[in-house]
Amino acid sequence: MKVSVVRGGGLAGITTRTELSASALGEEDAHTFTEKVRAAGLREARPAGGGPSGPDRTLYEVVLDDSGSVVRSRFTDDDLPESVRRLVEWVDARPERSHTRER
């Protein structure tokens, strides 16, 4: 299982990608990761809303790849669900995650 978080927009307009694979985690952390992913409800997330966002909102693309079953969801700072925010913050805080610029 892998989660990728692409963030763009914001006041800078710079796009970054953060990724974390369960295979990079120890057994306990991998279990927590699975729980966080389940709680985020990405499979049930509604499609991105239409229309322009407000100025400088972070734009999120969260991709869950679970053994080849891929779910992609998009959000902004105005509609990012709390559960997804908690997952993103947890991924950000893991030393095993990768963080790169995206062109």
């Binding site: 692409v6 927009g9 322009p52 734009l59 999120y60 693309e61 998009r74 995206e102």
Partner: peptide, 15 residues
């Protein structure tokens, strides 16, 4: 394009 893709930044507004 302005297509909700974070890479496209609302159609390049900061570009």
């Amino acid at each position: 394009p302005d297509d909700n893709d974070p890479r496209n930044d609302n159609g390049g507004v900061h570009t």
